[in-house]
């Protein structure tokens, strides 16, 4: 059943290349993770289902970010509900947890029974520690046969998890930047409208910015209307239309995008 030869030299490098390809092809972190679990499920020489559990600052409760098979979601969810299980323990401790046979497992509370009901017999959970990210993850491998993860398979899985950690770090960084761009865009738009409203009050009341802010903040409190909404109303009343919030245009691909003809920003003197 197991194939110890698959841990031969060079397999780590091939794996890295595959992970890089996944990273380059995925547009979002979710896509990358989905491809990652699919790869994990086929990469090992034993038939497994695979999922990735993540916990981050934004989502303080662990969640399944991707699963190779629908049934895996159910097993994962039961762990999160009961707060017990090898994947959660791996997430907490950063160390691998291996269940050779669920029928003979007495750790992890109700988990062995619940997992057994889903038709599983062995489990291997490996830490995913993306470098320089405030997030932790676990790579969860489930098999329907007992003893599916002997030493060589566990070693190979550990190599995979190691490479996947680095790739996950890159994917999360990119996802974080996309979220950051959206947050910043919204924050600037909001701030701009509030400043304009302050200016309108400053002109109408012949007052300073501090006094205008006090007026606006008081009105916001009294009417229980958000400062930004109140500001937008003031701007609309003066300019005759609501404040425009034009989204920032996405970047034009540098190769041959619809840039201005005849001008190449880089490369030409």
């Amino acid at each position: 059943m197991t194939d110890a030869q698959s841990t031969g030299p060079g397999s780590g490098e091939q794996l890295l290349v595959r992970l890089q390809t996944l990273l380059l092809e995925a547009d979002r972190a979710e896509e990358f993770l989905q491809a990652l679990v699919t790869l994990a499920a086929t990469e090992l020489s034993v038939p497994v289902s695979c999922s990735v559990t993540l916990e981050s600052e934004d989502a303080p409760r662990p969640y399944t970010a991707a699963a190779s098979h629908e049934a895996v979601h159910c097993v994962d969810r039961r762990q999160y509900e009961t707060g017990e299980g090898p994947c959660l323990e791996t997430l907490r401790t950063g160390t691998p947890h291996h269940i050779e046979d669920l029928d003979r497992e007495d750790r992890f509370g109700a988990f062995p029974l619940l997992a057994r009901q889903c038709g599983l017999r062995s489990v291997l959970a490996l830490p995913l520690a993306p470098p320089r990210q405030e997030a932790a993850g676990a790579l969860n491998l489930y098999a329907t046969a007992p003893g599916s993860f002997p030493g060589p398979v566990r070693e190979r899985a550990a190599v995979f998890a190691g490479h996947a950690s680095g790739a996950l770090g890159v994917a999360l960084k990119l996802a974080g930047q996309a979220q950051f761009s959206r947050d910043l865009e919204r924050a600037i738009a909001s701030r701009t409208v509030i400043d304009q409203a302050l200016g309108i009050l400053m002109a109408q009341q012949r007052c300073t910015a501090e006094q205008a802010l006090a007026i606006l903040a008081r009105a916001s409190q009294n009417r229980n209307v958000k400062l930004r909404d109140l500001a937008a109303g003031i701007v609309t009343s003066v300019s005759g239309r609501p404040p425009s919030v034009r989204p920032l245009r996405p970047r034009i691909p540098s190769e041959s995008g619809p840039g201005e003809p005849g001008f190449r920003p880089v490369g030409e003197g």
Partner: peptide, 24 residues
Amino acid sequence: LATDHDEVYQAIGMIMAQLGVSAD
């Protein structure tokens, strides 16, 4: 760090009120 931007947009608001024009 963005206090300059505040001043510019407060000025824009004042000009909007003084001239009755849009932000643009």
